[in-house]
Design a protein around this nucleic acid. Structure first.
Lengths: 235, 235
DNA sequence: ACACAATTGCGAGCACTGCTCTTGACACAG
DNA sequence: CTGTGTCAAGAGCAGTGCTCGCAATTGTGT
């Protein structure tokens, strides 16, 4: 009833259900064996169907990868949003930390899907920007909105020296695009906090810390969080 | 003459030359098509030899990947060391920046090889720790030594509050391992600077910034560098 | 209710991958 | 010069993505 074009023939319904099943199986395979090892034939096998039949529903392996990419972005975005909105809008530091913790938690629970989103690009695969930028920018926009709210509430530390002109142009474009109020220097610091959070998470997920360099990883992340919040001007 | 066991039969010499040639071709393929698409058969074709012959020199595809991993770590480490040593030991901020810039420059010039080192792990491949940790930790150790030198020279900002005990144990292990003097809080901040630098570089190399979000990327990186140096206590 | 047409599944087939094994040729040392 | 050890070749196995023609099923308009 929510859908204005609700005339769905049984065929269309069955088709949609099959595509959803393919995505579900693909997601499992992705989580277990990684993106580059995602096999359409394996999905077909598990679906109880011959490999060529899957091509009736999914154009190609890359198309399936795109579907899984959007699926993962959506799940990560939902998790982040839920974590952020579980705290009052005025708790800027809390929301910042909750966002970062939610991303880390999801990344550690779904390393292969996190790798698909933020790891090295899958060779021979180029994500179609028009379908993935929307879902893919949810988290960073959420972060920027938290910083913006803090700034508007006068809770963000005053900006230091102005940034160089070349950078100011980029920042101005972002500010108008998202309708923000944060000045250049703080926006740039927000961007740094953003990349740094993902840097820390990526190092942990991708095993760069080594087996026994850091054993207290929760504490390490919390420590980083506190300092990065300070870098962004929070607290 | 440097080698004590210099007795090399012509056979051994030829063998070593062939292995070097395989690594060279593998490096080219890696740079062009990415790690997951690295094909032993393609290397064999380019070597003008049938695929099975390559197995006489390289145990498996994973073995070749390990060789290329060590090769890349070595090149990155050399580039970083050269950049660091081009500046006087007393110029701590300069050495820190030079190290970071060298890593970024190498990463942008060799995105696929950078991805092999710091991106998502190649599915089904596990790097042998005993052969890769040595070359793989050169850069971070270099960074820590720069911070240590700054601390010993009294040029590092005084540490803030003590870190939590669980983290202190990890940091103590690192300090004794590398024979450092830097106190806990500053060591933890150094680790954060380290992951943050790689976070920024990874975002750029892996295309997370989007096509036109940031056009002044050099300036953005320099901005991040200045702030991260401050985070680490430098300047 | 029925016949038509759209949709779907199947299986063969192509070109590719990593890897193994047998076979035959070669070079080098005693 | 003979024997040993090294090497390249090629067939073959199991897997991959993807295409295409054919047959069967299934939904729909008459």
């Amino acid at each position: 009833m929510a859908d204005p074009v609700k005339i769905q023939t049984p065929r269309e319904q069955a088709r949609i259900r099959t595509v959803e099943q393919i995505i579900r199986l693909g997601r499992e395979h992705l989580a277990l064996h990684g993106a580059a090892a995602l096999s359409l034939r394996a999905v077909a096998r598990e679906l109880g169907v011959v490999s060529s039949a899957v091509y009736r529903y999914v154009e190609s392996r890359d198309e399936l990868l795109t579907l899984l990419l959007i699926d993962a972005y959506g799940e990560l975005g939902d998790a982040a949003d839920a974590a952020v909105e579980s705290l009052p809008a005025g708790d800027h530091w809390g929301r910042f930390a909750a966002l970062a913790r939610a991303v880390r938690k999801w990344a550690l629970a779904e390393p292969a899907r996190y790798a698909l989103l933020f790891g090295s690009p899958v060779p021979g695969y180029q994500a179609p920007a028009e379908r993935t930028t929307g879902p893919g920018t949810r988290v960073v926009i959420s972060l920027m909105r938290i910083l913006d709210a803090a700034y508007r509430a006068g809770k963000l530390a005053p900006p230091d020296a102005a940034v160089v002109p070349a950078l100011a142009a980029d920042l101005e474009a972002i500010r108008t695009e998202l309708d923000l109020a944060v000045p250049d220097a703080l926006l740039a610091r927000g961007a740094l906090a953003w990349t740094s959070v993902f840097g820390a998470i990526s190092f942990e997920v991708f095993g760069q810390y080594g087996a026994d360099t850091f054993s207290a990883r929760d504490e390490l992340f919390e420590h980083h969080l506190r300092i990065l919040a300070g870098v962004a001007g929070l607290e």
